[in-house]
């Protein structure tokens, strides 16, 4: 009984996932699980494959080895209809925002709604501008991505990722390039969404302040061995990780107290 419950509460699980671009290995035997309602932070030095982990989790890259389990089902063993049902629950914010450049912000946010819901145009427009105001972009509905700054693009990307009220949100460096106040507000937004809507988060970030603010759980990828070397709550990792580089990373190179 408890085992069954355990299974259900795991939204996502990577089992010994390996991935390579051609002959270049990017990930090797990475295993960890994301529980419902948690905010899991993926950390590690530059080039350790964090973005690749995200792509493997969201079904954009097929792993060469191992399994990606979504709610107990093997993602890559399901057929395409099932897969699109699964990914409908996901929202993804890419590193540069990845807004569709030929469309205004309004159209960017409403396209997923138009594609996947039967709502009328007016309702869609209302929802879209609500999502944009959540990230502080009220009044920018008719701007095109090229007219926005990097940070605004990122926020608009977040609004679009939230368009379909996803159960799981994947954020690739959400606060990179944002000023401290905006990035703080983003952290608050993440915590708020987690608490009020029960959204599960998988966040890639370098910002230590954010990590301790938002993360329930952190996994550390090592750039050299291309694998996961430690996982736990951020404080556990900071104080009692068996790996020097994990403690050093979380204490910004200062030795742990």
């Amino acid at each position: 009984m408890s085992e069954a419950l355990e299974k259900v509460s795991k939204v996502l699980e990577l089992k010994e996932v390996g991935l390579s671009y051609g002959d270049h290995k990017v990930l090797e035997k990475v295993s960890f699980a994301v529980r419902e309602g948690d905010c899991v932070v993926v950390i590690g030095g530059s080039g350790c494959g964090k973005s690749t982990v995200l792509k493997a989790m969201t079904g954009l890259l097929e792993p060469n080895g191992g399994k990606v389990m979504v709610r107990g089902r093997d993602y890559w063993a399901s057929d395409s209809v099932e897969r699109s049902l699964i990914t409908k629950e996901f929202g993804v914010l890419f590193q540069g925002g990845a807004l569709w450049s030929s469309m205004s912000l309004m159209e960017n946010v409403s396209l997923p709604l138009k594609t996947h819901t039967a709502l009328g145009d007016e309702e869609i427009a209302q929802i879209a501008s609500y999502k944009l105001s959540l990230v502080g972009l009220r009044g920018f509905e008719n701007f095109y991505p090229s007219e926005l700054s990097g940070g605004m693009k990122k926020r608009a990307g977040l609004a679009r990722a939230m368009a379909l009220d996803p159960k799981v949100l994947f954020l690739d460096e959400p606060s990179a390039g944002l000023d401290p106040l905006t990035s703080r507000r983003l952290d608050d937004l993440i915590n708020e969404l987690k608490e009020s809507l029960g959204i599960t988060f998988v966040v890639i970030t370098h910002e230590l302040a954010s990590i301790f603010e938002i993360a329930d759980y952190a996994v550390f990828l090592d750039a050299e061995t291309k694998t996961l070397i430690d996982q736990g709550t951020p404080l556990q990792l900071l104080h009692s990780s068996a790996h020097d580089q994990v403690r050093a990373f979380l204490s910004r190179g200062n030795e742990t107290p």
């Binding site: 990914t87 409908k88 929202g91 990845a98 396209l111």
Partner: peptide, 17 residues
């Protein structure tokens, strides 16, 4: 190609488009 560079294609895929 530029859309691919900016991950716009990936974001289409994640919305099942």
């Amino acid at each position: 190609g530029n859309m691919k560079l900016n991950e716009e294609i990936d974001s289409l895929r994640t919305f099942g488009i």
